[in-house]
Design a protein around this nucleic acid. Structure first.
Lengths: 193, 193
DNA sequence: GTCTATATGCTGATAGAC
DNA sequence: GTCTATCAGCATATAGAC
């Protein structure tokens, strides 16, 4: 951080992560090639291996970066908001704004992983750490006794994450999608018992 | 259909589709290899090309088969049921029972497609044809005027299809998941205006 | 840190015998 | 319908110069 050399190195690493995210999104992890990733970052194939020891390590780095950013965005959005459905709405809006905002890294990480991937468990754990934000938000809701809070959380996350499969629109559409999803649940569940 | 030879050929084709579905699910389309698919079906690599002209054609066949089966299952489940939330529940239960019932073909088709894939649009169209069942079911619901029926349908499908990412359980868990998803929506939206 | 060059193996697909 | 044999190309990764 204190020398030009270090900053340069760090930038190149981030450029590689961005290029990898773009390729993983477009082609899927298996079909994406180190060659294409390097080319997209303006590098030779072999140069990648100075920054990452393998293609798997690159996938892990893409997940770390994407999940770190969306965690920051969602955490910031709910800061200071009173627990309850409004806080859930704030989190969902931030979640969807980040996911659908245009950076391919989120499409690259919010999808099924090959079962043979060795780093799979690490990635699953990272995802769950992020989703704990929503577990806490749902825990704070007043809900009918019969409500399964785990299913409610997973339903919410599923409804949002699946939007990659069909969403095409702008920022205001994202907000109305978030509102719609939360409204469809809160009206009904807010009534108690 | 009338000769033993024809039946045999048809069986082998179906075996290839099943093997391909298993490999596409496990490895992803890009990383799955024709060689592994052939091996899993007990064939040599080249023999696949008698039944399918390319790997893309195989992916298309996997989608045709999977979507034909789930369309049949869901259509049958809602047959004769009075329009309304009970009919939605019947459809969701059938949808989830089929998806999570253990056949890897559904995990292979309910996931993002590589954008470079040539048969992509055909697959997207096939998916949408199936999802029209849910469009019709939601159209028949009595809902508050402000409700966006398209978002409601996509929310429902997203909540269900994302369950691949976390679901581990048996048949009764699938039923309670379907009930939970539908119940979380129906109570509230049933009340009108 | 990035390069050129290369090792080693796997890829989708084809040719042609049986 | 399935086989053996093979083509041409691309994969991840490494070696070593600069």
């Amino acid at each position: 951080m204190s020398t030009a050399g270090t900053i340069y190195a760090s930038n190149r690493r981030d450029e590689l992560i961005a290029a990898a995210a773009s390729c993983f999104d477009r082609d899927g992890f298996g079909a994406a090639s180190i060659r294409n990733i390097a080319a997209e970052a303006g590098m030779q194939t072999a140069s990648i291996y100075y920054h990452f020891e393998s293609k798997d390590a690159l996938l892990l780095a893409v997940h770390e970066q994407g999940l770190r950013h969306i965690t920051a965005a969602t955490s910031q959005a709910i800061e200071g908001v009173e627990p309850g459905w409004d806080k859930v709405l704030a989190a969902c809006t931030a979640h969807l704004q980040t996911l659908l905002g245009g950076d391919p890294i989120y499409k690259a990480i919010m999808r099924p992983l090959p079962v043979t991937l060795e780093v799979r468990q690490q990635i699953v754990d990272m995802r769950e750490r992020y989703e704990n934000i929503f577990r806490d938000l749902v825990a704070d809701l007043e809900l009918p006794d019969a409500t399964d809070r785990r299913y409610l959380r997973l339903m919410l996350l599923g409804a949002m994450n699946w939007s990659f499969m069909w969403f095409q629109g702008g920022e205001s559409d994202i907000d109305s999608l978030a509102s719609s999803i939360v409204a469809n649940l809160r009206n009904s569940l807010e009534l108690g018992t």
